[in-house]
Amino acid sequence: MIELKQITKEFKVNGDTITALDDVSLTIERGEIFGIIGRSGAGKSTLIRMINLLERPTSGVVEIEGQDITLLKKKGLSTLRQRIGMIFQHYNLLKTATVEENVAIPLRLEGLGKQVIRERVDRYLQIVGLSEHRNHYPEQLSGGQKQRVAIARALAHEPDILLSDEATSALDPETTESILELLLEINRELGLTIFLITHEMEVIERICDRVAVIDRGQIVEQGHVLDVFSNPSHETTQKFLKTNLDVPEEVVSELQTRGTLVHLSFIGSQTEQAVLAQLTKRFGILPNIIGGGIKKLKAGLVGNLLVHLDGDHDQTELAVRYLKTSGVHVREVSNHATVLDRLG
């Protein structure tokens, strides 16, 4: 539905050229929730603003349903933007307007009739759970309620696409969970395509179908959330996931002197298999779990364990091969070329 083709965005700053996006290509399918995750300054906000052309690319193509929207004139672009709702980190509500008025104002500006406006305001306030707060002003609402008003306002145009620009980053964990559950419900019930950016891994885990990792304006890794989280290939992704579980270097060095320290990832039903118990039975290897746990993603379960394999060198090689053939992703936690590097 949405396709970004070789998007580059450059800014001029004090005579210098700053590249915010560098040859970015993405495809977002109809009805999915696609997440972009990256650190501050990585290019996330510039990227999401390409979808509705709040930022125009220096080069490249933005297509929605096969149409290159960069070629649209003012009227066509205005019509397009009515099909794309957007929610922001800081809500952007009019303080002097009630909840009902905040949702209705853009509909009035669009020139819709009073009855249509009333019906839409009623419908979307009910969807976000704020029907009883329609006459309240923003200062009377919590942060989560303000974001729900912003979501209702974005939905009132009945868009095909919903953009979320760090919509939960100013909220506490409990409120964040409620907003994410609301976005999931909107995606399921209304069939909206949701494109979001965030620096919070929990947001990606909770609601996204696919994810792309952005670093210094480039997409360094992308794919289905379950695949990326279970077997991250790029250093930036690994840092987000903390797949080394923040083990101090001195602990790694000490454990390496008497065995091999590995990070293991399990997907779905593999999280229920007693593969580690088989290492002792089959190979005489003593697996010592240093840390880890199981996370529930939208697409399923992912288990991550940091394990010290204590035993004979040759038997360790066989044990690692057994883990891999059992469908477990294995990555050594070390800077040295050891047994797992040779196994590929």
Rank of each mutant, 00 (worst) to 15 (best):
L183K: 02
L125G: 01
A212S: 06
I207D: 07
S178R: 15
I151C: 12
A150Y: 14
H133V: 00
N187G: 05
Y137T: 00
S169Q: 09
D160R: 14
R148K: 12
A212M: 00
R148T: 13
L184M: 15
E189G: 00
T175H: 11
A170H: 10
V203Q: 03
G129R: 05
G129A: 06
T168Y: 08
R123W: 02
D215L: 02
L183W: 07
L180K: 11
Q140I: 03
S142Y: 14
E185D: 14
N135F: 12
M201N: 01
H133L: 11
A150K: 05
R188A: 07
L192M: 02
A156F: 14
I186T: 01
I161E: 13
S164G: 15
A154F: 15
I161D: 09
M201E: 05
N135S: 09
L171Q: 10
V203I: 10
F195W: 04
G217F: 02
N135M: 09
G144Q: 08
D122R: 07
L141M: 09
V213G: 02
H157F: 15
T168E: 05
P138H: 05
E202F: 08
L196I: 02
E158P: 04
T193G: 06
E132M: 04
L171W: 10
Q140L: 03
L130N: 06
S131K: 12
R188M: 09
E181M: 14
S131D: 11
D160F: 06
I151R: 14
L155D: 12
V203L: 09
E139C: 03
A167V: 07
N135E: 13
L182M: 04
E181Q: 15
P138L: 08
E166D: 08
G191Q: 04
Q145L: 06
G129E: 05
Y124W: 12
K146G: 04
Q145T: 02
T176N: 13
V211Y: 03
H136M: 12
L163K: 03
